[in-house]
Design a binder for these strands. Structure first.
Lengths: 341, 341
DNA sequence: CTGTTAGCGCTTTCAG
DNA sequence: CTGAAAGCGCTAACAG
């Protein structure tokens, strides 16, 4: 049997209460006694039974998820994932709140963070916006002992305890590497971004350019198209591109709004096939893969991200460690042939 | 507060003991009383606190992992993953045993299963061999109330409760799809298998052939090379292939023993680059990717597989459900540009 | 500063 | 067939 608090108490010749005080380093223990207990703990190789502790403590973990209110499929998945985890988690003493926040609005995000902090939760998960006001908000939370986890888009240089999302630089590099090959290492490639204010989009672009320049010097990157993740706008701009750039021989859509792109391509595809790589496996991109309109889709699994965020915040609350490999969010590469289901 | 057994007892007008008997459907309760309690449970929306139950019960989950004794990097990873999980799990009341089994030997596997069953564990994880004797062994275990999970290689048509591994057919298709493009949809492709007695290898091959035939009719598949997952043998056969097949324009290594392949390619690569796709991200394949000798590596994450197997067996033991999406093992596609770390 | 005691939600003897 | 009571490993008043 694993040693228990009773064993420590006996070995150290003190009461359970004192052991508990030392274990949870609460004040009111004479240094000498403390040392006595600590020695016993070490010698005996005690590990706390977190489940029993939580039971006695009636511990309830409370986390707040702040999700942008943008209307795109990936965020729908993210929201769905949060709600699913929330439902399942009630059984495990975790209570998850979800708040919608105006998208791409640092002020709104910080305001939402402050509001969330009022409830003194154990942790807050945010889709970060890369601005100093948000860093300051994170700092405030950290100061108040509230763990902040960034989701999907990171906030380097802040006191967030974890980033649950993919390496967007690597994603951009991967897209370039695949697309370069699909294009036969030559021709002109169009790049559709959402907004360069979003850090994840900037990073994808940087990674993409890096590899195209180094590895495919014969490929020319056409002037960027900013689709603002808006299907209608993306469609209009893509149609224009397809019409006006006869030498176009590849397309990388690194943001959202792919519904518009697919419409434009569908009208165009009878003319000639164009290698296309996009992000996030949604109903739209999935269909495009099946039809052969898209050649690859890079994906981040929203479910994994949310579960990982919860695991990390919970471990943090318990002062426990996490398995790094388990928390690394992968860049999934989907082709027509390995789509799930 | 969530309703507890006390609430049920009160509502049904019975004692805790009776509630417990009903909850764990143990005998010795008058049908009428049982119904009374069941109604109360339903009405009140009770969900058992598994942690508290386990504490009271001093529950200990015991699982046995039967791992082939082959000497290859992937199995090393798998073994390492089992030991890592074993170490971490002691804290969570799960005790994991590991036994080595002669590789590719159905008899040995069944014998090991029987031996493992003697200890009456809650579950056994096996790297299945696709033979009826193993199905029978699984049946025996199921009969004895021991859950069997297949790891890495599945055993369809058996009573295993779960398969923790990738879809090897899809993996083969994916390899074909990528390699076909990398080869420019034309030329001759060599395929190195481990052994066609292994179901996972057979399936990868089938998926590969399927896509090459349908999608790349111009590509010719050369006669199979059986490397038996043995580096030395793979090297010899690969060297011969490279020397004797001047029209060779692509290579798919779907088994292990890639160390030998890399040596052969390294000697060959100054001559001309050959698109190569292999399986499992190990030190060898990782280096080959970096060097540009391999173009892509399809991977299954041994850590995920083991953790998933444990989660599923544990949930089964508790009569709980699992999140399908979480337990699906993905086919990771690694290029030079998205290798982790 | 330290110890006693009564639980947390559930299971399990042991009587009746 | 049913119930009372003790206890799993830990925490939290409340006394001293």
């Amino acid at each position: 049997m694993r040693p228990t608090v009773h064993d420590i108490a006996e070995k150290a010749g003190v009461s359970l209460a004192t052991v508990d005080r030392v274990l949870n380093n609460r004040p009111g223990v004479k240094p000498k006694t403390r040392a006595l207990v600590e020695d016993a703990i070490a010698e005996i190789g005690y590990v706390r039974d977190v489940a029993a502790a939580n039971l006695a403590r009636k511990r309830l973990y409370r986390f707040e998820f702040l999700i942008p209110d943008s209307d795109n499929s990936f965020l729908d998945q993210l929201r769905a994932a949060v709600h699913e985890v929330a439902a399942l988690s009630r059984v495990e003493r975790v209570e998850i709140g979800v708040r919608e926040v105006a998208a791409f609005d640092a002020q709104a995000l910080v305001a939402a963070m402050r509001k969330a902090m009022m409830g003194a939760p154990d942790g807050i998960a945010i889709v970060a916006i890369d601005e100093d006001s948000v860093r300051a908000g994170t700092e405030e939370a950290a100061e108040a002992g509230i763990a902040v986890v960034t989701l999907v888009s990171d906030l380097p240089g802040s006191r967030r305890i974890h980033y649950a999302g993919i390496d967007n630089l690597a994603a951009g590099r991967t897209a370039a590497s695949l697309l370069g090959r699909f294009m036969g290492a030559t021709g002109s490639v169009g790049v559709i971004v959402g907004s360069l204010n979003a850090r994840d989009h900037r990073e994808r672009l940087a990674g993409f350019e890096q590899v195209i320049e180094r590895k495919y010097p014969e490929i020319r990157i056409l002037p960027l198209i900013e689709g603002r993740d808006d299907p209608a706008r993306v469609q209009r701009l893509a149609e224009r591109l397809l019409a006006e750039q006869p030498e176009l021989s590849g397309l990388y859509s690194l943001g959202a709004g792919n519904r518009g792109l697919v419409k434009a391509l569908r009208a165009h595809s009878p003319v000639r096939h164009l290698p296309v790589i996009a992000h996030e496996l949604t109903a739209t991109t999935r269909a495009a893969l099946s039809e052969g309109l898209f050649d690859a889709v890079l994906n981040q699994d929203a479910g994994h991200e949310v579960r990982s965020a919860v695991r990390v915040m919970k471990a943090h609350a318990d002062g426990l460690h996490t398995v790094d490999a388990q928390e690394r969010i992968r860049i999934d590469i989907f082709l027509k042939d390995n789509m799930p289901q």
